[in-house]
């Protein structure tokens, strides 16, 4: 890899020596990595390896004990989820997180409307906040047209998962962190999901960081994979290199 590419990485998302301890337990123990503009990075690791804690530290849900996170040259360590959203950082959740009583279409509009205009202009804006066409396009992309008017809470798990992911992309974020997008999704949908993410990466140009247990999904989707074990980065690199690393196998299979 050339020096120039590394610099581009460093200027986009730069995670430096992040640590988070709960008492004596070091959930995240000095993790550093970079994400370049437009890149898809996968984070793998066995249960309890600190992936979710790392995510929550980057996303402002918890404050890291030490270390820093920089985004586009700005220190964003410990910023609130709201401030991160405003800087163009979106996320999806491991568990279902949709607005259950709102229709699918309203869920998608709600996801992007706060990025349009001001409080006052939104009060006076038309009901769809000018986002109707974009929401419909997203609904088509995610093939949710037949349920667009139904309350999100009344849909199946897989459909709600799709809504959750579609919502994260509605505001055209510069960086999206996806927390186990395949968890609980049936195998047929997993392939569809991977294609959707590739499409979104091409059309919207954002960078993704994906936590996932589904190795196949990660290996196909992410050109760059980080493997975490016991709060530390075990190895990182192209999927094949990581996959063939004996220590990764050992971490997954146990001793």
């Amino acid at each position: 890899m050339s020096v120039g590419a590394d610099e581009a990485r460093a200027r986009f998302l730069e995670v430096r020596d992040v640590r988070k301890a709960y008492g004596a337990i070091k959930a995240v123990d000095g993790v550093s990595f970079d994400v370049a503009r437009g890149e898809i990075v996968g984070v793998i690791g066995p249960n309890g390896s600190g992936k979710t804690t790392l995510f929550n530290s980057i996303l402002g849900q918890i404050t890291p004990s030490s270390g820093s996170v920089e985004f586009c040259g700005e220190d964003i360590t410990g910023l609130s989820p709201l401030d991160l959203a405003r800087r163009g950082i979106g996320r999806t959740f491991q568990s279902l997180q949709v607005f259950v009583k709102l229709s699918v279409r309203d869920n998608l509009i709600a996801a992007a409307q706060e990025f349009q205009g001001t409080m006052r202009s939104r009060l006076l804006a038309p009901p769809d906040a000018g986002l109707g066409a974009r929401a419909d396009a997203m609904i088509d992309l995610f093939r949710l047209g037949h349920v667009a008017g139904r309350p999100a809470g009344s849909l199946s798990y897989g459909q709600q998962k799709l809504i959750d992911i579609a919502m994260a992309f509605m505001p055209t974020p510069r960086l999206v962190l996806l927390d186990e997008p395949c968890a609980g999704v049936n195998p047929g949908l997993v392939e569809e999901l991977r294609e959707l993410l590739v499409t979104l990466n091409k059309t919207q140009g954002g960078s993704f960081v994906v936590i996932e247990h589904n190795m196949d999904f990660i290996m196909k989707l992410c050109p760059h994979v980080i493997c975490m074990v016991e709060g530390k980065v075990l190895t990182e690199g192209p999927p094949r290199t990581v996959q063939s690393n004996p220590r990764v196998l050992e971490a997954y299979l146990g001793n």
Binding site: S80, F99, A168
Partner: peptide
């Protein structure tokens, strides 16, 4: 409505 249904999700979507 977003605030009512899921404040944590709402916040991550820029809803103050």
């Amino acid at each position: 409505a977003a605030l009512r249904d899921n404040p944590i999700r709402a916040e991550s979507l820029g809803i103050n």
